[in-house]
Design a protein around this nucleic acid. Sequence first.
DNA 1: TTATACTAGTGAACACTGTTCATATGGTCA
DNA 2: TGACCATATGAACAGTGTTCACTAGTATAA
Lengths: 216, 216
Amino acid sequence: MGVKERQEREREAVARAILDAARELFVAEGYRNVSIRKIAEKIEYSPAAIYSYFPSKDDIFLALAEEGFRILLTCNEEASAADPIDRIRAGFWRLYEFSKEHPEYFALMFVDRSVPSISQDWQRFGFVREMKHQMAAHIQTVINDGLFPPGTEADAVFQILLASIHGVAVLRLCERLAPAQNADALARDTLEAALTGLRAGIPRALQTASSQSSDC
Amino acid sequence: MGVKERQEREREAVARAILDAARELFVAEGYRNVSIRKIAEKIEYSPAAIYSYFPSKDDIFLALAEEGFRILLTCNEEASAADPIDRIRAGFWRLYEFSKEHPEYFALMFVDRSVPSISQDWQRFGFVREMKHQMAAHIQTVINDGLFPPGTEADAVFQILLASIHGVAVLRLCERLAPAQNADALARDTLEAALTGLRAGIPRALQTASSQSSDC
DNA sequence: TTATACTAGTGAACACTGTTCATATGGTCA
DNA sequence: TGACCATATGAACAGTGTTCACTAGTATAA
């Protein structure tokens, strides 16, 4: 009498097919150039059918972003290196690798502004906070081991390293690097520079965020 | 007999009006949500008229990106600080400020992937190369003054600092920071960390870009 | 001054988009 | 067998970027 169960399984299978088709199309042609009709055609359903699985095209987008975080998180969990600093390195390097292996996931998770709702819901994604805590916790233990100058805040280290590696990932993803430029080497060096700088100690500077506006 | 001149002036005025209207609408509603019809309505012309000034919506986009580079470049020219390191700081800080003051320009110039052609034409933009040369030239003199470890490449310094500040700018622009997070402070610290790290000297590491893939 | 040439701008249309809804289909259960 | 209900559909709506035959109006040449 597993009729309900089977029906539910079938529903999930179709939803899965929609997401797979959408992801493949997004990667191949970009979100903007993928229409519901194209997704429908790929899974051999009518366009209208999709709307009984997802309320809108944006929601397909969001569902994929959610999956992206899940993938990145499970990736991060298997982090283990002898040197604790190496483990930090590896953690952020993995984010960069992720941006290469899953460019479309990365784009929706960290870059895309074309989906209106993601900006709103961003902080609601439990994944973001979880990822942050995972890394920040490890960084804290490293700080406690005295591998960073006294008074260093784990949260600040996390944000700075994230921003650094993020910059390279986005430049690469958005094709804003010279063709000759070796993105991997740049990623390594940028991460290394930030890490070295943090360990050397950066001036805590002016407490208030200095407003040296350029006025142009 | 300045008929041709007057006609040309009028053409430019309308083109200007289209760009202004498009920019305002892009900032207010985002590229995706702005239609040619909306732009046309704003300047009180028919939608078709726009196509005798720009071949496509994407070309309006590109024209604005070009303007963005011009603005950023003229901004950068008035760079002058006593300390040569401060001048480097100021240069990249200006890019960050630019991302705040002209978010839509910045987005088209550095992060947008929704316009298919920009990825192709990116390297053709003389502006990009010019901006790079401007900064790299100054960095070279600083290196010559011995303020960086011997053997440091100006181009690498430029790329690393650019990537670092770019990361913060994008995180802020795309609203991927916690609401409490002070973006300016993060920008300052990230830039400082990279600069400190570069001056301390980062290992030139494995020559070939190490392929430490995470395989997930 | 008249006739020609040219230009800018238009309205209507084409082929597409995301989305909605009444309708039909076919399996489930009493 | 007959009632039910989830699923999928075709057709349509309102909107999109873009094209094109056409018109009104101005500039040039005869």
